[in-house]
Design a protein around this nucleic acid. Structure first.
Length: 276
DNA sequence: CACCCCACCTGCGTGC
DNA sequence: TGCACGCAGGTGGGGT
């Protein structure tokens, strides 16, 4: 669910409330998350520390505390982070962070695919080390992307979903970006021309910026840190629109499964074997 | 190494 | 109404 824009919106909502504030305590629920530090580790490193910086990396939220302690939270498919001054009796709350002044951050996650990980000073922040480049980084250029894809036979859609290559894109925005760039999702990544990479990177950035402005995409579960939905679902061109008319040419949107995930595309606007 | 599949979970919509 | 099935925004371990 939460891809780069949704995580960015949550990050921007949390930052002004939490930066400079001290964390009082953390409580974990009984049911395990897919990946989580133990209650003991969290209790050892977090209580009493002031949050110095909060940022997003890919789909991860990175909380930097004083003393070089790092808390990493991933929301998986259905994770949410709420801020409130009291703990509402919500189902599926698996962690509660209480900050000084009584501010409460609840981690709610129906499917429990999320993760909460603590990294002591000097410990390598494992999940971030494996991440690829940020779409908005100046180091991410069409030339770099093409060089990374050189010789690769895997479909461009699958490569876009690979966080070790480009961080933050998920199924929705990968489909939308390929539609915007007019590239068939099954095109072997190594076959994209430099022109196509230029177009694709431009569209990825435009799409992500716009989605962030709209507060993200809410299909079923996504809510920001205040409990509000996003609006970008109203502007989706292909995702979830199988059989509906293409917003550009009217052709019926197609769906095809790639690497176990649905790809939505317009067969006319995104022809096979683009140029080449 | 490159790539794919599947498990990890719960809930919801659809069709019988 | 009830049930069985397919599907869902992510990740990473293991197999080919």
């Amino acid at each position: 669910m939460p891809e780069l824009p949704e995580v960015e919106v949550i990050c921007r909502g949390l930052r002004p409330e939490l930066c400079g504030r001290r964390l009082a305590r953390v409580a974990l629920g009984d049911k395990p998350l897919r990946q989580s530090s133990s209650p003991r580790e969290l209790a050892q490193w977090l209580p009493g520390r002031k949050l110095e910086r909060l940022c997003r990396r890919g789909k991860y939220l990175v909380f930097r505390f004083e003393g070089h302690v790092t808390l990493v939270i991933h929301l998986g498919m259905t994770g949410r982070l709420w801020l409130d001054h009291q703990l509402a009796p919500l189902p599926h709350v698996h962690a509660v962070f209480t900050w000084e002044g009584g501010l409460i951050m609840a981690f709610q996650d129906v499917r429990r695919f999320g993760s909460i990980l603590i990294f002591p000073p000097k410990a390598p922040v494992q999940p971030l080390k494996a991440l690829g480049r940020e779409p908005f980084s100046r180091k991410t250029t069409p030339e770099w992307l093409q060089a990374q894809a050189r010789g690769r036979s895997r479909p461009i859609k699958n490569l876009l979903l690979d966080g070790r290559f480009l961080a933050g894109l998920g199924n929705i925005y990968a489909c939308e970006a390929l539609w915007a760039a007019g590239i068939h999702p099954a095109t072997p990544a190594g076959q994209l021309t430099l022109k196509e990479w230029q177009k694709l990177l431009r569209e990825i950035r435009r799409l992500l910026r716009r989605a962030i402005c709209r507060g993200g995409t809410t299909i079923n579960d996504y809510l920001n840190s205040k409990g509000e939905t996003g609006l970008f679902q109203l502007e989706l061109a292909v995702y979830g629109r199988e059989g509906d008319p293409c917003r550009r040419c009217g052709e019926s949107i197609a769906r095809q499964v790639q690497a176990g995930r649905s790809s939505f595309f317009c067969p006319r606007c995104q022809p096979r074997h683009p140029t080449e």
